[in-house]
Simulated scan of single mutants.
Amino acid sequence: MPLRLNDFLETAEQLWPRAGAESWDSVGLVSGDPAAEISRILLAVDAVADTVDEAVAVDADLLLVHHPLLLRGVTSVAEDRYKGALLARLIRSDCALLAAHTNADVVASGTSAVLADRVGLESSVPIVPGDDPAIGLGRVGRLSEPTTLGRLARLLVDVLPATASGVRVAGDYDREVQTIAVCGGAGDSLLSHPAVQSADVYITADLRHHPASEAREQTKLSGRGPALIDVSHWASEWLWLDAAAAELRRAHPELDIVVSDIRTDPWDFAIVR
């Protein structure tokens, strides 16, 4: 029997339960007919013009993204506004849109867990665990052997897809590190968490000037606290797409699951003096 979108939504709920989403989040089906038949799915971090064009070009029946297109309230989906234009193009092309955001961050195979695995952390656990200790925000674990902060940063350059912003580091290049905390996506809200503070280094994205500067200064004063590694938000979460695709292929081998390689990091280039 052909697979219907509604059946796929049940699988998505099992993998990334909506109950795990933050209260401010907007996850789930954005557009599309739950009764429609689907055979090909495109996975991407963002629903932007390039990934929508790709979904249409590969004849996808569903575009599954990490970041919700309608995260913040809108009052119009007119086609002279980009969100309206994207939705209209998807609807006209019979391509549904589904978002799995913070509900996909917290699961045992979520964005931070995938990042922790690619970094090489062993027995990583959530920084902020939920009722189930395997589920929660961020991850913290240990490398099998110590390395230096500089080598760890170079490892991230190799592991993550290339972006204009690259990998930024606050700390001594030769500092020995072994206990690593990670949070895919924007993670400066966890800077003061005890699990992060007791780590040797914290890897996340979107570290703003003031929180990063304050954390750095406090570490200098107290002699305790993690070095900081700031990576691209998009890159830190793009790794999750392959893991999600693998789970979906196991659940639905009849589907054609495609992972987008399009870079949707918003920065095109950087000039360094």
Rank of each mutant, 00 (worst) to 15 (best):
V119H: 10
V119P: 10
L121Y: 09
I127N: 09
I127V: 15
V128F: 09
P129R: 00
P133Y: 02
P133I: 04
L137K: 02
L137A: 11
L137Q: 10
L137I: 15
G138M: 05
V140A: 13
R142P: 05
R142I: 01
E145K: 03
P146Q: 00
T147N: 08
R154E: 15
V157I: 14
D158Y: 06
V159T: 12
L160V: 00
P161E: 06
A162G: 07
A162D: 15
V167N: 05
V167T: 04
R168D: 14
A170E: 14
G171F: 06
Q178I: 01
A181R: 00
V182G: 04
C183Q: 02
L191P: 07
S192R: 12
S192A: 14
H193A: 08
A195M: 00
V196I: 06
Q197E: 13
S198A: 15
D200M: 02
I203W: 03
A205P: 05
L207P: 11
R208A: 15
H209R: 00
H209T: 09
H210Y: 13
H210M: 03
A212G: 14
S213Y: 11
E214I: 01
K220W: 15
L221H: 06
G223N: 04
G225P: 12
P226Y: 09
L228I: 00
I229T: 02
I229Y: 01
D230Q: 00
H233L: 06
A235H: 06
A235I: 13
A235L: 03
L241C: 08
L241I: 03
L241E: 15
A244N: 08
E247V: 04
E247N: 07
L248N: 14
R249D: 13
A251L: 13
H252G: 04
H252Q: 14
